[in-house]
Nucleic acid binder design. Structure first.
Length: 792
RNA sequence: GGGCGAUUAGCUCAGUUGGUUAGAGCGCUACGUUGACAUCGUAGAGGUCAGUGGUUCAAGUCCACUAUCGCCCACCA
């Protein structure tokens, strides 16, 4: 074998990936008695291709998995794909160029399964090409039978614990996707709209006139009230007008009724402190439902409900004569008619922030629908407490969780009126309004295809299957239970759970992290993992978010592997600090390539120089070598022990980036630029123990540095390790070898002082030569140095 | 409106519990092919650490305020 003059990354990386697979280097062994380190891998959403952001985030976690494996843990490293749910449905709809409801339930589900499978295989191939140490036997998807079964088990468990309920309630609704959604799935966007001022007549206003005052003025003042709105199309659903209780302009009107223009509906004028008197006219109409304030007023003041907007986003019969129109059409017509009727007093363009569905950008409506909810609002305090038991890296990300939980104001709506998801294991009884749950033995079950286990308690056997599917997060929030094989292998799960690590990006703290913590709390009263490792985002080279649709070779992961190699791409990913966003920077990838080359060349040289020593190593030989270490050897070995201690501490604190930087600095500057040059004389011309001391030192340094680099650059380190050290350590792979432990007997502060003096001497000599434009190889007649260290 | 981050060399970023002349890589300038490496090496130029005020013997680091940027949340009639 031996070292060729050049390292061919593409060939070597493929070769080692094949070797790792055939040697089952990363497979979890349940019979291994060492402590387990279980990782709750983030299953990427199947909604597009791999992008550089995935590489950034996943690689950082992968390097940590390698570190813990070398620390002696029995690493459980599964990999999942989140393919069930709306994101995948939207992706597939886009591909098919057809809406799900037009394709048909069964055909659409089949298409989703096909597309998911294809995308997941591509992802897996990519992660393998990046050298991921995943145990691919543990691959799962959130639509597979085990995931569906676990998810349905979760539902049944929560139902029995009284933590899930079905309610007819106002809830955010997407008219584009035609489904209910949860609070966590809402985004904000600005849109241009108009602020309309409408004139409402006051009912029976003449009866209110005080005969002692000027009649004409009084009548003008109180015969009408002006309200400002951005949603005139909701006028048919107006159920009240609100003013602020301290607003003297309207005080006299509170308790009376206004009449909606065009529709002539009498609605009460009510006072509520939630009204902002300075906004618009200070009087606002309450519709069912324009926003969450309307919902609050509707509840608190027990107002009637007019279901104006249909699930398709059109006006219902309650909007007659505008029934059947889309919201947009209705707005245009109603505004025009208001204008004609003289009820439109003002119209001003304005920019308004509206809530939209994060998946499609469509403004959300609030509809009263029948949905399943999980009671999270009651558990805020417990969920905050759970969050505090988890170690967050970086720590400040915990604050986001705290704020999200503290500010929750909806229970978690988990039902979706969609297709590609986990069905509810439930049949409804229309006779008594009760439900029949599936038996656990039936799971996973599709109630549309399977008969209920028994008739309803009321005797009715004609049950209606629940047609909905679960929110995708309702399933991915049990990823520790899915990945940990809770139902198939409870004994194993017992050992895996709570898991040690959840890596994920910061944008899904409010969803995946939160929901997983909630589920774990509800099911088991425990936290799901000990540590949360939160990654930042990769930013496009010019700054800003990576657009998934943009195909740019500077951010195309496959092209980057081809151009720089997996190790170099990993080097870039791991140079970004934990939790910090980082621009995609090809100069860092080039730096990674240089580091790989430098490692190769240094190893090639060291390998040659120590070849005649390696084979002699035995304890006697090693002992006498250590006794003959020179100042420079002792300097290098001593500072190496400090490096090991430092890098180990940094890895343990999830600061892989700092560990990498320190290791690189030591390797490049201390070892290559200086120590190697110092000992060349001894290596070439020295003899006996003097030479052996340098050989042993180089041997130790290279082996330890390879191990410190191994989590970030698994291929080049394996390549060198296999050539020089694998036989000696009797190890199949550097990645199964033991992480170095600092050897305190090698600490030598005096030698480090001498080393610093040697460095100063070296630098001075180089500066002197450079100033005279001499080659660094030029011989110097003599050197004197005013060193303050007389031990030289 | 509230919160969390960030602001350090032309660019991308490090700067640990406050401690001499603030670092790295890239880029730039000059030089050098020395028996691992030109995908290299050496040396150099380049920063009033966003601003103001404060605490301290000592502040890039701690505190307050301000500005700009990013993200999260709330409001959004």
């Amino acid at each position: 074998m031996g070292f060729s003059s050049r390292y061919h990354a593409a060939e070597a990386e493929r070769r080692w990936q094949t070797y790792w697979a055939s040697e089952r280097v990363y497979e979890f062994n349940p019979d291994d008695s060492r402590p387990i380190f279980a990782i709750d891998t983030p299953p990427p959403t199947v909604s597009g291709d791999i992008h550089i952001g995935h590489v950034y985030s996943y690689t950082q976690a992968e390097a940590m998995a390698r570190f813990w494996r070398m620390q002696g843990y029995n690493v459980y490293y599964p990999f999942g794909f989140d393919d069930n749910g709306l994101p995948t449905e939207r992706f597939v709809e886009k591909r098919l160029g057809q809406r799900a409801r037009d394709v048909g339930r069964d055909a659409f589900i089949a298409a989703c399964l096909d597309v998911s499978r294809e995308v997941e295989d591509r992802f897996e191939a990519f992660w393998k090409a990046l050298g991921f140490s995943v145990d691919w036997r543990l691959r799962y998807s959130t639509i597979d039978p085990n995931a569906r079964r676990t998810s349905q088990w979760s539902f049944l468990d929560l139902y029995r614990k009284g933590l899930v309920y079905r309610a007819q309630a106002p809830n955010p609704w997407c008219v584009e996707c035609q489904t209910a959604i949860a609070q966590a799935e809402m985004d904000d966007t600005d849109r241009e709209t108009a602020f309309y001022t409408l004139q409402f007549q006051i009912a029976d206003c003449r009866l209110q006139i005080n005969p002692d005052q000027d009649q004409s003025e009084m009548c003008n003042l109180q015969s009408a009230i002006q309200i400002a709105t951005t949603r005139p199309e909701l006028l048919p659903a107006c159920v009240a007008v609100f003013v602020h209780p301290d607003d003297s302009r309207y005080a006299a009107l509170v308790g009376h009724e206004a009449i909606t223009p065009l529709f002539g509906r009498r609605v009460p004028i009510l006072a509520d402190a939630a009204v902002d008197p300075s906004k618009g006219t200070g009087a606002v109409m309450c519709c069912t439902f324009g926003d969450t304030t309307d919902v609050m007023w509707w509840r608190e003041h027990q107002l009637p409900l007019i279901p104006l907007v249909t699930r398709q986003g059109r006006l219902s019969e309650d909007g007659s004569p505008y029934a059947g129109l889309t919201l947009r059409q209705a707005r245009e017509r109603i505004v025009a008619d208001l204008r004609e009727a003289g009820a439109l007093l003002d119209e001003q363009a304005t920019v308004q922030t509206v809530r939209v569905h994060e998946r499609c950008g469509t403004p959300l409506e609030i509809l009263e629908t029948s949905q399943w909810f999980i009671r999270v609002l009651d558990a805020k305090a417990a969920l905050l407490a759970a969050g505090r038991q988890i170690a967050w890296h970086p720590a400040h990300m915990h604050t986001r969780y705290e704020h999200w939980v503290s500010n929750l104001n909806w229970d978690w709506c988990i039902s979706r009126q969609r297709f590609f998801g986990v069905p509810f294991p439930v049949w409804h009884c229309d006779a008594c309004g009760g439900v029949v749950l599936a038996d656990e033995s039936q799971l996973p079950v599709d109630p549309m295809q399977t008969a209920p286990p028994h008739p309803c308690a009321c005797g009715n056997a004609d049950l209606r299957p629940d047609p909905d599917v679960m929110d995708t997060w309702a399933t991915s929030s049990v990823s520790p239970q899915i990945a940990g094989q809770m139902l198939d292998n409870p004994a194993l799960f017992e050992r895996l759970f709570p898991m040690q690590l959840r890596p994920q990006a910061h944008d899904i703290i409010r969803t995946w992290a939160f929901y997983t913590i909630a589920k774990s709390h509800f099911h088991f009263g425990t936290i799901p993992w000990e540590t949360l490792m939160i990654s930042g985002h990769a930013l496009a080279p010019a700054g800003g978010k990576i657009s998934k649709s943009k195909s740019n070779s500077a951010v195309d992961p496959a092209a980057l592997i081809e151009r720089y190699g997996a190790d170099a791409l990993r080097y870039w990913a791991c140079s970004g600090s934990i939790g910090a966003d980082q621009q995609v920077d090809e100069t860092l990838m080039k730096q990674g390539v240089r580091l790989v080359t430098k490692l190769w060349n240094a190893a090639r040289f060291i390998g040659l120089q120590i070849a005649d020593y390696i084979f002699q190593i035995d304890s006697d030989n090693q002992q006498s070598t250590i006794c003959n270490l020179q100042w420079s050897d002792r300097f290098l070995l001593s500072s190496l022990q400090r490096l090991v201690a430092q890098a180990t501490g940094q890895f343990r604190a999830y600061d892989y980036a700092a560990a990498l930087e320190a290791t690189e600095r030591f390797f490049w500057n201390t070892l290559c630029d200086n120590y190697l040059e110092w000992v060349k004389g001894r290596l070439y011309d020295g003899a006996g123990m003097e030479r052996a001391a340098a050989q042993w030192t180089l041997h130790q340094a290279l082996l330890i540095l390879l191990k410190l680099f191994a989590p970030v650059m698994p291929h080049i380190t394996e390549e060198i390790y296999q050539q020089l050290f694998a036989h000696e350590e009797s190890c199949r792979s550097i990645h199964l070898s033991a992480w170095p432990v600092p050897d305190d007997t090698l600490l030598d502060s005096e030698a480090e002082r001498v080393g610093m003096a040697l460095l100063a001497l070296t630098t001075a000599a180089r500066r002197w030569k450079t100033a005279r434009q001499l080659s660094l190889g030029a011989e110097l007649a003599q050197m004197t140095i005013a060193a303050d260290d007389d031990s030289l």
